[in-house]
Simulated assay, not measured.
Amino acid sequence: MTTETNAERLERIEFSGEGLEDEDFEWLIQQAERVQELEKQLNETKALPMLMELEKRKSENARLRKALEFYADDYKWFEENKGSPFAPDYRMEIQSDGGDVARQALNGESP
């Protein structure tokens, strides 16, 4: 058998009008398997950027959740947990923060 390209071999098989030879049949199976492998690789290549974006979003979600938990903590809002409101250095943790935790979280920093 002469050396032929894949395209030439496929064309010969398509238009021969005869039955398939064993080696042609095996070649077609190999080509189908190769197509499956290439499709798998293509799907994995497409998935990688999506997985990277997902990890980025998970990290951002965790950072923002931590900031929200800081402000949602009931303990930080009750004056009786901070000593006397008449003391000169009296400030609740929420007041002392001045929004820094939220700004850090929104800027991509861990609070």
Rank of each mutant, 00 (worst) to 15 (best):
D97M: 00
I94P: 01
S110W: 15
E60T: 15
S110F: 14
N61K: 12
L48G: 03
A32H: 10
F70Q: 01
A105Q: 02
F78P: 01
D97A: 01
K82Y: 14
E8L: 01
L106S: 03
N81R: 15
L48M: 14
Q95H: 09
N107Y: 05
W27I: 01
E23R: 09
E80C: 11
L42N: 06
Q104C: 12
F78D: 13
V35N: 05
M1R: 08
S59Y: 04
Q104P: 02
E18Y: 09
G19V: 08
K66N: 08
W27E: 01
S84K: 05
Q95K: 04
P88Q: 05
A32E: 12
L68G: 07
N43Q: 15
K46A: 09
S59R: 11
K58M: 10
W77K: 15
L68K: 05
T3H: 06
M92D: 03
R91M: 07
S110D: 15
R57D: 07
M50Q: 13
E69R: 08
S84T: 07
D24V: 01
I94A: 05
R12V: 01
V101M: 11
E80V: 13
D89T: 11
N81G: 09
S84R: 09
Q41H: 08
R103C: 09
L38V: 02
L38Q: 04
W27S: 01
E39L: 14
P85R: 14
E11D: 12
K66I: 03
A105C: 06
E60Y: 01
Q95A: 12
R34L: 07
T3F: 06
Q41I: 04
E8S: 08
G19H: 07
D100K: 15
K40G: 03
G83D: 08
W77E: 02
G99W: 07
K76A: 12
A102V: 13
L10Q: 03
N6A: 09
R91P: 00
G19N: 14
A87K: 12
N107C: 14
N61H: 12
N43C: 13
R57M: 12
D97T: 01
E69S: 05
L54A: 11
N6T: 10
P111K: 04
L64S: 03
A62I: 08
K46P: 00
G17H: 05
D22M: 11
P111H: 06
G19R: 14
Q36A: 14
A67L: 02
E18P: 00
E4Y: 03
L54D: 12
V101I: 12
F25Y: 11
F86N: 12
L38K: 02
R103V: 11
R57A: 07
N6Q: 11
L42T: 02
Q104Y: 06
E26N: 10
P88D: 13
S96R: 14
D89M: 06
R103W: 13
F15L: 12
K82N: 15
K40V: 02
M1A: 10
L48T: 14
R57G: 00
S16E: 12
E23H: 14
M92F: 00
K66L: 07
A72I: 00
E33P: 00
F86G: 00
M92E: 06
E26Y: 07
L42C: 02
S96P: 00
L48W: 11
L106P: 00
E79F: 02
N61F: 13
L106R: 04
